[in-house]
């Protein structure tokens, strides 16, 4: 499903890439930007957490003239004199103006890196409203946003993800290069499709889907296991012949007491030792009256 999403989201689509501290989703985001640029679409990047140089460094190969970078990285809060874009400008009018500023025939794709930065400074309801307006507004064809899910309260993450048409959650795998993508896609008919895919990203930012670790895969292997007989190809004999069974039944187990054994142990033969006991006065000690022996 991942290549499908990369190929091009529908108009009015809103895709969220969710990541955590253990696994960064920025590489996947760059792949999405790269794929959109290769489709000859105009891409507007609202960069809070990435500098223009860093973004363009990896996109060297592809055409970057259709990439419009809006710098919210150097001064997102307006601490210096000339901020390019501050987080408080995050609203419908301002974003529409930015996107429309470069005149293009068809609506562009807006990439937000990252939504977490905005959510830290703008309240979730306002962010959600702006995103919804952008989605419906028509100035942008699709929105792709990166979200660090582990930095916010669950409610905020949930409400933003409810707006999205597709959510890709990136999780780490054992090997460094691969990552697991859990994809939830809501189609317009209201159908929700969920999928899991293992992917890796090559140096030219193309995504390779390795395999599907989905549960259907597990179920497929299960009946196979049931059919195969584990005792089929053994190097030793598991079965007994009749004579072997007879011999086995005859054998007395070492710690089972037979009658002979018991009598042999209890009645000792002549010449063996014997214990003689004569009761002593001191042995007759009364626990309840310890001073019994005193002459009072």
């Amino acid at each position: 499903m991942l290549p499908e999403l990369l190929q091009g989201s529908d108009a009015g689509g809103f895709l969220i890439i969710q990541d955590s501290a253990g696994c960064s989703g920025r590489h996947l985001l760059k792949s999405f930007i790269n794929a959109a640029l290769n489709r000859e679409e105009a891409v507007h990047v609202l960069g809070f957490e990435i500098s223009e140089e860093e973004l363009k460094e990896e996109l060297k190969g592809s055409l970057t003239q259709r990439l419009h970078f809006h710098d919210a990285f150097t001064d997102p809060l307006g601490w210096t004199d000339h901020p390019a874009f501050t987080v408080h400008q995050f609203g419908l009018e301002e974003l529409t103006r930015l996107v429309k500023h470069t005149s293009h025939a068809k609506p562009a794709i807006l990439v937000i890196d990252s939504l977490s930065w905005i959510l830290r400074h703008v309240s979730p309801p306002v962010v959600c409203r702006t995103l919804q307006q952008l989605k419906k507004g028509g100035a942008v064809r699709a929105i792709i946003g990166l979200l660090h899910a582990d930095m916010h309260q669950r409610g905020a993450v949930g409400s933003v993800c409810h707006l999205a048409t597709s959510v890709i959650t990136v999780a780490p795998r054992m090997t460094g290069d691969e990552a697991l993508a859990k994809i939830t896609k809501r189609s317009k008919s209201g159908k929700v499709v969920q999928d899991e895919e293992i992917f890796s990203i090559k140096e030219d930012l193309t995504v390779i889907v390795m395999s599907k670790p989905s549960h259907t895969g597990l179920k497929l292997t299960d009946p196979e296991n049931q059919e195969t007989d584990p005792t089929a190809n053994l190097t030793f004999n598991l079965h007994l012949s009749d004579t072997e069974r007879e011999a086995k039944d005859k054998l007395a187990l070492p710690f089972v007491f037979s009658k002979e054994k018991k009598t042999a142990l209890l009645h000792s033969g002549p010449g063996s030792g014997r214990i003689l006991y004569e009761p002593d006065v001191n042995d007759d000690y009364d626990q309840e009256d310890p001073d019994d022996d005193l002459d009072v």
């Binding site: 955590s20 501290a21 960064s24 957490e49 977490s116 660090h148 582990d150 930095m151 309260q153 669950r154």
Partner: peptide, 19 residues
Amino acid sequence: EDDGDDESSDRLLKGLTHQ
């Protein structure tokens, strides 16, 4: 594990790890 109400130093560490 993510409890929603992590200690603030943990939240700081996560945010910086992203940066």
